[in-house]
Every structure is written in structure tokens, then in C-alpha cells.
Design a protein around this nucleic acid. Structure first.
Lengths: 124, 124
DNA sequence: TAATCATATTCATGACTTTGAATGTGATTG
DNA sequence: CAATCACATTCAAAGTCATGAATATGATTA
């Protein structure tokens, strides 16, 4: 990759990379939907599977991206792994963008599907 | 592209595409730097060339991306074309992201380079 | 320890993005 | 209209991302 700057006078753009990293992670509807789902607290993967309608492996892949970006954290509880956002400030970013686009903050139109995890079905 | 959804119960992720579009546009340090440069009002392309240190064609390409995304608008005045942000709400998005990453809002470390445009050098 | 459950990782392919180089265009001046 | 200035567009090679399919892992139970 050759350089695209004229000379050494260009300001370093490196400080912007952290922001870029965040935006890159948000560049995907499924990942935004996952974050929206986590607005009301932690959820297990099976939850997201049920509510978002994606296959397990797919959800897991997107969760990995969010996790590696540091936006979410996981906690294992027996068979299930629960995810939560690391810093709610991420919602300020998301909400600012929906404002900008004039779109509703939605995106989490939950279907009636139910999650089979024991957390949702305590001792039936 | 094959489908990644299990069935028809998945919520439509289409409403999120507008947000995704914004984030995609911000997924680039040069474009963020340009937007930061426009915080204090409109600037011509030669300005950005001088202050950011990129070649004209490169700046122009990034401006095209920002323009097509609707984030900036242009105005021609004789030889020069001046750009300005369409909606200052974009800075809420940017600032929220810098907050999240703990980075300073900076990125616009202006060098002493000067812009040759008549706007900056009125009748010398 | 074997089976099972919930979730993660790897891999390969196709789609999209980036960016330098070359070239095109519209406004202005002579 | 020819030259020039400021800027835009096109193109192609290289890189990055998306995603289905297959497989692996770690916890739990029998």
C-alpha cells in the first residue's frame, strides 16, 4: 500500500482509529439489532436466536465481533452464556444516529417467539 | 447471497439500514477528519488539501462518499467549491463515539500550512 | 466417560471497499 | 476559443468483510 499523503505535514489520523473501530462494528444491521436487544439488560444467546430469528452460528459470529470490539461482555452460567453491553454510552451513539436519519430508535420488533432457556422458563 | 434467517419470524432489519449507512460513512479516519474540519463552518477543497495533507484527488473521493451519504453539501463560488455539513447532528454521533472510546474529540491537529484560495488570502 | 446441550471457531467463497493513477469537466481569464 | 485553475470521475488491483457449512469446545448429566 503506497502512501496517500503528500508529505510529513499531515496530521496523524491515528487518534481517529478508535472511533473508526466503533463505527465499523456498528456497520451491520444484525449487530445493531443485538445491541438494541440488550438495552433492557443481559440476555443469553438462545434469546437472541429466538427474538432475532438468526441461526445460532450466525448470532455467535456477530457476538464475537461485538465482543472483540469490547462493546459487550459475556458471563457463563451453567449451560448458558449471557451477554451484556460493556458501556451504555454505546446507546448514545446509536440514538444520535437514529436521530440523524430520522428513523425510529426501534429495530427490535420482537416477535412472539419464546426463548427456551431456563432463565425464561423457570422451573415449569 | 443466501439467506441467513431461519424463517419468516425474524424482525425486518431494514429500518436499521439508515443507521448502518451513516456508520459506514464514518468508517474512515480521513472522512472523520474532514467532518471535524468542517466543525467551524464551510471550507473549500484546497483548504482540506492544505490542512489534512492529502492529495486533491483523494480528498475529492472522500468528499464524494460524504456527499453521496448526504452528510455534506457543496456550493460553487467561481473556481472554488465550498463544503459544509448538512446536519450538525452528525457531531453528536462523532462526539458520542469519542466519549465512548475515551479519545479526545480532536483529530484536527491543524498544521501551519496555509490554504492558497482567495477566500483565505483576500486581495494580497 | 459417554452423551447432550449451548455456544464458539474455522474455513472457504463471494461480495464489497479502498486508493493511486490517469483522465475528464466546468468556470474563468486573456 | 485556448489556456488555466479547482475539482470530479473512472478504473483496476489489492485488501477487507460477510456468511453458510462444518466442526470444535466446555459445562452438565447419566
Amino acid at each position: 500500500m503506497t502512501l496517500n499523503v503528500i508529505d510529513g505535514t499531515a496530521p496523524s489520523l491515528k487518534p481517529l482509529d478508535a472511533q473508526v473501530q466503533v463505527f465499523k462494528t456498528l456497520t451491520h444491521p444484525a449487530r445493531i439489532a443485538i445491541l438494541n436487544l440488550l438495552r433492557d439488560g443481559e440476555h443469553c444467546v438462545c434469546h437472541m436466536e429466538a427474538f432475532l430469528g438468526f441461526r445460532q452460528a450466525y448470532i455467535s459470529q456477530q457476538l464475537a465481533v461485538l465482543r472483540e470490539a469490547g462493546l459487550i461482555q459475556d458471563r457463563r452460567d451453567g449451560w448458558n452464556i449471557y451477554y451484556r453491553v460493556t458501556n451504555p454510552q454505546i446507546y448514545v451513539v446509536l440514538d444520535a444516529a437514529s436521530q440523524l436519519t430520522g428513523q425510529p430508535t426501534a429495530g427490535t420488533a420482537k416477535p412472539e417467539t419464546t426463548c427456551p432457556c431456563p432463565h425464561c422458563n423457570p422451573k415449569e
